[in-house]
Simulated scan of single mutants.
Amino acid sequence: MLGMKFNWGTGVFLAFVAFMSFILYFVISTLTDSDLNYDLVTDDYYKKELGYQKEINALTRAKVLGMQVQFEETTEGVVLTFPEKIDFTKVKGTMFLYRPSDKHLDFEIPISLSDSHLLIPNNRLKDGRWDINVEWTYNGETFLSKKEISL
């Protein structure tokens, strides 16, 4: 190596080796970094995809029959208002609150109504974006209402 000349070919080769070393270092450090999480948005993504048509049907049924849940953000929290024309004691279902940025904050609440309103208190909701899905049945029919809120 002592008697070797440094010409443009050697410079290109060394630049290429340095570039490839940088790319290799970057790929390896990215793949092994435990701070980076590569989870799917939901764990059962493919299973949910198969049930998507049922979701569309429930959303459409709620809209056509006027059985949509109304969402209102208040100082106490998010108030859900069910249609006034129904018997609240016959409503069964669940409300799923999904936090896209952190799946550990997701939670589900069973629906139990004594009147047309249901409150999700602010202390249950961390600031940020939430997707609220309310799936409920009444007289054997399933309805779905969805809302995206930002606190």
Results as ranks from 00 to 15, higher is better:
48 K>H: 12
60 T>E: 11
61 R>L: 15
46 Y>N: 06
73 E>H: 01
33 D>W: 03
30 T>N: 11
91 V>P: 08
40 L>N: 11
42 T>S: 05
17 V>D: 01
71 F>V: 05
94 T>K: 12
21 S>N: 06
16 F>S: 15
69 V>K: 02
36 L>C: 00
89 T>N: 08
50 L>S: 08
49 E>P: 00
87 D>W: 03
114 S>T: 14
26 F>H: 12
67 M>C: 07
70 Q>T: 07
88 F>W: 05
23 I>S: 10
84 E>Q: 08
106 D>F: 10
43 D>I: 03
88 F>L: 02
90 K>L: 15
92 K>V: 02
28 I>Q: 08
78 V>N: 01
60 T>M: 13
48 K>Q: 14
19 F>D: 04
54 K>V: 01
92 K>Q: 10
89 T>H: 06
101 S>Q: 04
59 L>A: 03
43 D>K: 10
56 I>R: 10
61 R>D: 09
102 D>S: 11
106 D>V: 09
81 T>H: 03
76 E>C: 00
113 L>P: 12
88 F>R: 01
69 V>I: 04
112 S>Q: 13
92 K>T: 10
81 T>Y: 02
56 I>T: 09
17 V>R: 01
35 D>P: 00
95 M>L: 15
56 I>L: 11
46 Y>T: 08
75 T>Y: 07
83 P>N: 03
73 E>P: 00
79 V>H: 02
61 R>C: 04
55 E>W: 12
57 N>D: 13
80 L>G: 05
20 M>P: 00
69 V>R: 03
20 M>T: 15
66 G>Y: 08
34 S>V: 13
49 E>W: 13
84 E>M: 02
28 I>A: 10
26 F>L: 01
83 P>V: 02
24 L>Y: 14
22 F>H: 13
67 M>E: 04
62 A>K: 05
38 Y>K: 01
58 A>G: 09
115 D>L: 07
58 A>R: 06
34 S>I: 11
65 L>T: 14
83 P>G: 05
104 H>N: 13
16 F>W: 04
30 T>Y: 07
47 K>Y: 08
44 D>V: 05
32 T>V: 12
111 I>T: 05
112 S>N: 13
63 K>A: 11
35 D>Y: 06
88 F>N: 04
30 T>H: 05
27 V>W: 06
70 Q>G: 05
54 K>T: 02
67 M>V: 06
86 I>P: 09
92 K>R: 14
49 E>L: 14
104 H>M: 09
110 P>F: 02
32 T>R: 03
37 N>H: 11
89 T>C: 00
99 R>V: 06
39 D>R: 10
104 H>C: 00
64 V>F: 09
55 E>V: 05
56 I>K: 14
26 F>S: 12
51 G>K: 14
53 Q>Y: 12
105 L>V: 08
43 D>P: 01
45 Y>G: 01
101 S>I: 12
24 L>R: 02
36 L>F: 14
91 V>D: 09
66 G>S: 10
102 D>C: 05
90 K>N: 07
94 T>H: 09
28 I>V: 15
81 T>V: 00
38 Y>Q: 00
73 E>G: 00
43 D>Y: 07
